[in-house]
Nucleic acid binder design. Structure first.
Lengths: 220, 220
DNA sequence: AACGAGATTGAAACATGTTCTAATCGTGGC
DNA sequence: GCCACGATTAGAACATGTTTCAATCTCGTT
């Protein structure tokens, strides 16, 4: 394979002369990036099994052994990608928060958008879900990180656009209750996504189940 | 699989002389049983990866190829075992229904017992969970079956020991609501089990999360 | 009792995740 | 400018899920 192309290493960056000590690290970051990008592209095409690590290595121009220096396993790569995607979702929600006048409406809006992010690339979504459920102790940190991110987003959606005011009004008990609701809804969302992933219900059921759970908890 | 077994329905009892036509089917049933038992024994010892199909074949005395005539995949075997285990749980609950005077108490009792069944053999539980989340289209039927079984059990726990009376009192709307609650709690349970399985929270958190969700929905 | 269709077997083959190794490269320190 | 050391590479090697195949066996039928 053409991975021998040493020329790429000499890529002089965007124009800035890189610090001498940072040179290697920058190359390593670029390699990681290419690995993750290649894995995601393959997952979009062929799901979890479509991500053949030999292909990832070839497409990203790194050796198989190097790939394993950066990630513990195939799952690890996909979970890294998941966390990056969640960062993007956080960004999008910071710019345009979940809309709606009630917590129920906002939380539904949030999950609708988050589900679209997942189901926009069904194969990629399935691959990531499988990586989450098949993870081992090595990947637990990434999974926990993803869970925490989502939990924060759900809490934010429950709160609404006026966090300070609401936070001031609601006592600690209120916060605790919101965290519990957020965790519960997140779990329902995850399970519904897995159900869709393995084929026991259609895509539309995912958001439907989450909304049902949200109604059970929030409507009165 | 080779459904050539025209006479499988006539499976002879424990000590009874088997009918001539049932002989092959009985052998096949025995093989399946040995396969499943061997897989479960290996899963109890070494979890999902502990179930090496070559070992399953050897321990159960069937050839690798035969094993694949009965089951589509490793996941398929474990999901078959799950459904058998759920039958046993159904049995236990029929004999001693979930106790408690309120739906919340009964449903909590149910999930406590069901969780114990899972966590009694942590390795086996992890293996089955991984099989559920890693399933493909072939195994969707078994997963859907398991889901349905559990859903029924949760509904029964919500209802309590007097199904006829309650069923008569509650309109269809009530039934629908109960089904929704059951599905939601089941999803929370599943997600919490996966969370325990991949190591992001301890065993005790599973029942805790389910109880929290049940309180959010049922307490007022 | 012989026959034949389908089931089973034993073993090899294949695919792919993961690990290992010797050779080479790139970089900071002299 | 050169060296030593860690990173990288190409590729082999290993483990295990899955498939395939020819030979054999089983059992109901004739």
């Amino acid at each position: 394979m053409g991975a021998r192309t040493r020329s790429e290493a000499a890529a002089g960056g965007a124009g800035l002369p890189e610090l001498p000590g940072a040179r290697l690290a920058a190359n390593q970051l670029r390699r990681m990036r290419r690995v993750v990008d290649a894995a995601v592209r393959l997952a979009e095409k062929g799901g979890f099994e479509g991500v053949r690590l030999r292909d990832v290595a070839e497409h990203s121009g790194v050796a198989l052994g190097t790939l394993y220096k950066y990630f513990h396993s195939k799952e690890d790569i996909l979970l890294f990608a998941l966390n990056e995607e969640l960062e993007r979702v956080e960004q999008a929600l910071a710019e345009r928060p979940a809309s709606g006048r009630t917590p129920l409406a906002r939380v539904t809006d949030f999950f609708r958008r988050a589900t679209e992010a997942f189901l926009g690339n069904p194969q990629l979504g399935r691959a990531v879900l499988r990586a989450m459920a098949g993870g081992d102790a090595e990947t637990a940190v990434r999974i926990a990180g993803a869970q925490l991110r989502v939990a924060r987003l759900v809490v934010a959606a429950l709160h609404g656009e006026t966090p300070d005011l609401a936070a001031a009004r609601e006592a600690e008990l209120g916060d605790e209750r919101e965290r519990r609701i957020a965790l519960t809804l997140q779990y329902v969302w995850f399970a519904a996504l897995v159900g869709w992933s393995v084929g026991i219900h259609p895509e539309s059921a995912v958001i439907h189940h989450v909304r049902t759970a949200a109604e059970l908890i929030l409507k009165r």
